[in-house]
Design a protein around this nucleic acid. Sequence first.
DNA 1: CCTCCACTGACACGAGTGTTTCAGTAATGC
DNA 2: GCATTACTGAAACACTCGTGTCAGTGGAGG
Lengths: 172, 172
Amino acid sequence: MPSARETELLEAAYRYVLTHGLADVSLRPLAAAIGSSTRVLLYLFGSKDGLVRALLARARADELASLADIGTGPGVMARLWEWLATPAHRPLLTLWLEAYARSLVEPDGPWAGFARATVEDWLEVLKASQPVEVRDTPEGLASRTRELALLRGALLDLLATGDEERVSAALA
Amino acid sequence: MPSARETELLEAAYRYVLTHGLADVSLRPLAAAIGSSTRVLLYLFGSKDGLVRALLARARADELASLADIGTGPGVMARLWEWLATPAHRPLLTLWLEAYARSLVEPDGPWAGFARATVEDWLEVLKASQPVEVRDTPEGLASRTRELALLRGALLDLLATGDEERVSAALA
DNA sequence: CCTCCACTGACACGAGTGTTTCAGTAATGC
DNA sequence: GCATTACTGAAACACTCGTGTCAGTGGAGG
C-alpha cells in the first residue's frame, strides 16, 4: 500500500526520532534533517498525527521482529534481558518508554493504546514460553506478569543509570 | 524563601499538571486555569523552566513524604506496592513516569537527572529495610535492585492496563 | 504622608507550529 | 500525443509559544 517514496521517508524519519525523541518532534526540522519538506510529509502521511502513527507502528514492528527473533521456550527470560540490555537497542527502548508514558498521559491522539498493546505483546511471548500445563492457570498468569514486571523494571533502571553490571546481576 | 503567593500558585499549578501532564504544558492555559497570568508566573518563577523545576521538585517532595510515611523494615515491599496501587496516587505516578521518560530523552533542561534521582531514592528505602548484615554485600545490592525492578515494572503494567487484580496477584 | 515592595494587567515581539493554496515537474499508461 | 498520476517547491495563513516592556496597583513600614 505505501509507495516506495513513503517507506523511504518513513525509514529516514524513524532514524531521526530514534535519536531526537518523538514527543516534541516538529515537521520543519525533521523534514530538513531527512532531506524532504513539510509539504511532502503532509502529502504522504496526511497529517502530523498520521506520521506519528506511522512512526509508532514502525517502532512496534521493530520490536515485534526482535521478539520473534528471540523466540520462545526455556531460557527466554535470559534472552529477553540480553536483548534489552544491548547498548545498541537503547535508542529504540528510550523511544519505547517515551511512547509508553505519553500514551498514558494523553489517551487520545496517535499514541492511544500503545502502552496496553506492548504489555499484551510481551505477555504473549512469555505465555508461549511457559509449560503447556500452566499456561491457562492463574499461577501461569501471575508468573508471566511477574516476569514481565521484572524485565520492565530492570529496563527502567538500566536506562536511567546505565549500570548494566548491577542490574544484570539482579536478574541472574 | 518562597513567598506565600508563590507556594499558593505552585500548589494550584501542581494540581493542574497532575491531571494535564507536564510534558506539553504551556503557560497561558495553565495560568488561566489557576486564575493567574503568564506575567505573574514568570515574575515568581523566573521562567517556564523555573516553574517546571519547581513542579518537579514539588512532585518529588510529595513522593519522598509518602516514602517516609511508609517507613522501612519487614513488609516494606507489601506496603510500597499497596501505596503504588492506590488509585488516588495514579495521577502522581503517571506524572512521575512522564518526568522519568522525559529526563532520559532530554538529558538537559529542567528534567535533568530526575530518573536517576528516583532510582536512588527508592534503592535507599529498600536498603534501609534490609537486614544489616546483607546491606553492604553484593547480594544485598542485587536483591534490592530486583525488588525495585519488580515494583516499577508492576507499576508500568498497572498504569497501562489498570488490571490491579492480575498485577497484585503477581506480586504476592 | 510617603516611600518601598510584592504583585498584577495589557500588550506587543519574534519565533515556531501544523496546515493550506497554488503552482509546477517528471514519469507512466493509453 | 495526451491525460493521468505521484511527487515537490514556495509562500502564506492563523494560530500558539515564551518572554519583554511599561505601566500601574495595594498594603506595610518608616
